[in-house]
Design a protein around this nucleic acid. Structure first.
Lengths: 202, 202, 202, 202
DNA sequence: CATGAATGAGTATTCATTCAT
DNA sequence: GATGAATGAATACTCATTCAT
């Protein structure tokens, strides 16, 4: 009741400290998992006392939320070059290859983060919402890009969702090592062809 | 660690007791989640003492493993009618629709179980392996079926993996309520067409 | 939610253990006060583990409630000889003297317990209720006794309440050392006379 | 312990600040209780920084002591009209009624303050001493008044102590709602008669 | 085999007090 | 003097696992 007054740090030092806590938590959650990381460890890794953590965060799950936001912003950055760049209807295949490669890189770069945060998103609706919003934003931006590039408006969002599923499955199979490199190449090729066909279809 | 003498129950009563524990755990994990269910609750729900649980299971995570196996066997049963039945190359579209509907039903029937166990699979490699094996088995059986039905062997497994991703994404979007029923119908239609094209493609 | 199942111990060993916890808590609360006694100390003093405490008690304040009940039962016992014995209208004065002496002895015997538990009764309504019930019971039993002894029914309970106040003040003054022994004797004498007059009055 | 240099504020602003802290604490202690009020809340309510509190007070319990003094001075004021006014031996009954009414009003006005501070007085000897001194002062002043009004010197202080106990019990019963309004009236009447008799007695 | 009482390590959070600025 | 960010010790309660009976 009384101590709900979480500081919104405006001073540079405070912001740095809050970010240090988020960063330290991010690393620990990836390394040990959220549930197996305790607040004392977070404070120590961030170079602060245990008490001060609660000046910046409501509770431990509040830290998690910020960590997830950080993770999602990383994801966003990785796709920004594609989403911000121009799309040419003629070169759509190369753009899809680029998207696939970026997705694979993004998943591979930090498998632990992906697994941990994705798992937590399935368990906590707050986090689920964040991921859903992110996914929707990305897909919507893609839709606008593709519309601008002259692709048919017909069922465009649905086509993009299906395409997104194809790419996700590809990443999933790759990360889990269910497939060989040879298979991956075949899948990439098939995926690209399929998506191109889908987008160009009626 | 030293007490590895977990009984493999052969007596009928023992087997029933072990199954009761697994069933009770399954229900509780779906209802409350694995982490929020404690062993005392499991024992009580199964109608046994807390101590006896450790005669049948190494530890709590060992119970989880059995529960996951049960869940996976449920999943397998749901797809068995499709996988056991005949596949006709001409009617492939209707078979795909059936597969999609079964997948959606399977996910929808117990969203909690799906979320909970899927999340745990991301966090524990033992469980991940079980799911991977299941996925591989299903996809392999599909491949054999499709080969028998006369589909081109060329990249067939890769095509199936991509198709599987399309269906999973569809289920995901449906469960998360990101899409309307109208969108769902469009996606089902698109998905079917795309998969048919994929399987019939070069 | 799930662990509200506080055992009501029926086995002899369990009852002994529960009583050991209550007794140890009683002593510690008197010695250090309720707030400055932690659950680890209670468990240690009772010769049990910290965890088992929560098999018998809901939480720490639940222990306090039982301790208060024990204290009140002690108080009750100390007055039982007076409340159970016969009262003769002619010898009412000596009975009052006896009551005063018992009250003083009761307060003096364990000043710490009196102060601690009385203070807590002012801060927690649960405890206040227990004390109020005790006071009401005692006064009611006195009323019945006095009625049986032939005292006027008129305003009898009110007279008893006032008399009770006189005795309490006396104990209070004695314990706080506000008064000398000489004063005490004078007050006892005055109190007795006043109460006798009150009870015999119209 | 080493920093005993608590400032005795002489500047007007300092005194105001100290008083603001005391006043804010008084209100908070009544509202939430001493233990459930933290120093950050006190500082905020007083409009000062948390650090400055320790320039004026040794520690938190030192604030409490000042708050108790304030409370006691409030109590004193409430009785001053009676203690300062003239007492006529003939009209002693009405003066007693007035005293009773003032006592009840005083207790009723802020039951929380009464309970909280009275409880703390039982737990802390410093506070106990303050209350004892107050009680002794009041009773002594009453004694002087009554002597001046011509009442017998014989056992006068003892008579007053007993009378005081009667009034306190009355307030206690009233606050705890153990008694009905009808009972209260009877008790007030009986109390007055008893006290008058006591003071006029040998 | 079976019981369920007992263990005790583990953890998020609070808050009086200090101290760099 | 004044600030309020920072400290870190303290504590109730949980729960997987064990073991005496």
């Amino acid at each position: 009741m009384s101590n709900n007054e979480i500081r919104v740090p405006k001073q540079k030092r405070s912001i740095e400290k809050k970010n240090a806590i988020i960063k330290a938590s991010y690393d620990l959650f990836c390394e040990k998992g959220y549930h197996k990381t305790n607040t004392a460890e977070i404070a120590k890794a961030a170079g602060v006392s245990t008490g001060i953590v609660y000046n910046y965060f409501q509770d431990k799950s509040d830290i998690l939320l910020e960590v997830i936001k950080l993770y999602i912003s990383h994801l966003g950055e990785q796709f920004s070059s594609i989403l911000d760049g121009p799309i040419d209807k003629e070169n759509i295949a190369s753009m899809i290859v680029q998207f696939i490669d970026t997705s694979i890189a993004s998943h591979t770069m930090n498998v632990d983060a992906h697994n941990e945060f994705w798992a937590l998103s399935l368990l906590e609706s707050d986090i689920q919402t964040l991921f859903d919003q992110f996914e929707n934003t990305i897909l919507e931006r893609l839709r606008e890009k593709l519309m601008a590039a002259g692709f048919s408006h017909n069922c465009l969002l649905e086509k993009i969702r299906i395409s997104y599923g194809i790419v996700e499955q590809l990443c999933h199979d790759y990360i889990r090592h269910n497939i060989t490199d040879e298979e991956l190449e075949k899948m990439k090729s098939l995926a690209t062809t399929t998506i191109v066909g889908l987008l160009n279809g009626v």
